[in-house]
């Protein structure tokens, strides 16, 4: 096995689905694997992963991650077909979204996160499909009575999702002197928008056009692809859906035009 772990960093604002994804991914890799990717064995440090997996299997919403800084997660993997698999040590720390929120608001980065980003060989950029904050211009006609007319100063926290994500990428670019690794954009909670019938890349262009342009404009030096992923497998607030999902809790359905949990990671490993 290679002595150097293969680093993949998850980037995304709070509640964008990073930890839920990690829990579901761990189970998928452990259980049967997919996309020619599976666990070679259980990692020594696995308590955090088991906690995430438990919550995922129990269809429970994850509490907001409380740890500070990136939580070290290392997975020993086998990559490839069963008779031709090669071992690989994947380092995929769980980073609290607040770290990225602070990076946007203050330009502050934890040293350990900076170090990971500088050496990462792949980025998973999370954007939650049903939680996009979009810029909304004041209507041409007077407001419909909701606004008091009293203006409030700008708060960075209230900025649109696409602005924050682009800015994070810009800061990562500064760290890495514009030498980006492959970026897999993970549109999480894909089930919530699957009915629209759009491919994930088209959804990105529609809902996060600034980010879509940023990614396109960096080609061909930047390799990127957009995936639609549903770690939960559906809207767990809906009792009917919840019951359906619970029947096969360990294997969630892939929504229309969506991708398996392992797909973004496999793609990143192929494009490292």
């Amino acid at each position: 096995m290679s002595s150097q772990p293969h680093g993949v960093v998850m980037l995304g604002l709070p509640s964008s689905g990073k930890s839920t994804y990690l829990g579901g991914l761990f189970h998928s890799l452990k259980d049967s694997g997919a996309d020619g990717l599976r666990l070679q064995g259980l990692p020594d440090e696995r308590d955090y992963l088991i906690e995430l997996e438990k919550a995922w299997l129990a269809l429970e919403p994850l509490e907001r991650s409380r740890h500070h800084g990136p939580k070290h997660v290392e997975l020993p993997l086998l990559l490839g077909e069963p008779d031709d698999a090669r071992p690989l040590r994947l380092e995929i720390p769980d980073v609290v979204g607040e770290s990225y929120e602070a990076a946007w608001e203050y330009g502050q980065w934890e040293q350990s996160l900076q170090a990971l980003l500088r050496t990462a060989r792949g980025l998973l950029l999370f954007a939650r499909a049903n939680a996009v904050v979009a810029p909304e211009l004041i209507e041409i006609h007077p407001s419909k009575g909701e606004s008091s007319g009293e203006r409030s100063p700008w708060e960075p926290a209230d900025s649109p999702t696409q602005a924050k994500l682009c800015d994070l990428l810009e800061q990562v670019g500064e760290m890495r002197r514009e030498a980006f690794p492959a970026i897999a954009v993970v549109v999480s909670a894909w089930d919530s928008v699957a009915d629209l019938g759009l491919a994930p890349a088209d959804w990105l262009q529609w809902q996060l056009p600034l980010l879509a342009q940023w990614l396109t404009s960096h080609k061909p030096t930047l390799t990127q692809r957009t995936f639609g992923v549903s770690a939960q497998g559906g809207d767990l607030e809906n009792e009917q859906v919840r019951e359906q999902v619970a029947i096969h809790a360990g294997e969630r359905p892939v929504p229309l035009n969506g991708d398996k949990l392992t797909a973004p990671l496999r793609w990143l490993l192929d494009h490292a």
Binding site: P135, E136, I138, P142, S143, S147, S148, G149, R151, W154
Partner: peptide, 10 residues
């Protein structure tokens, strides 16, 4: 220019 400002006009 945005509704988040609370203003009724740009």
């Amino acid at each position: 220019w945005r509704t988040s400002s609370g203003g009724s006009e740009p």
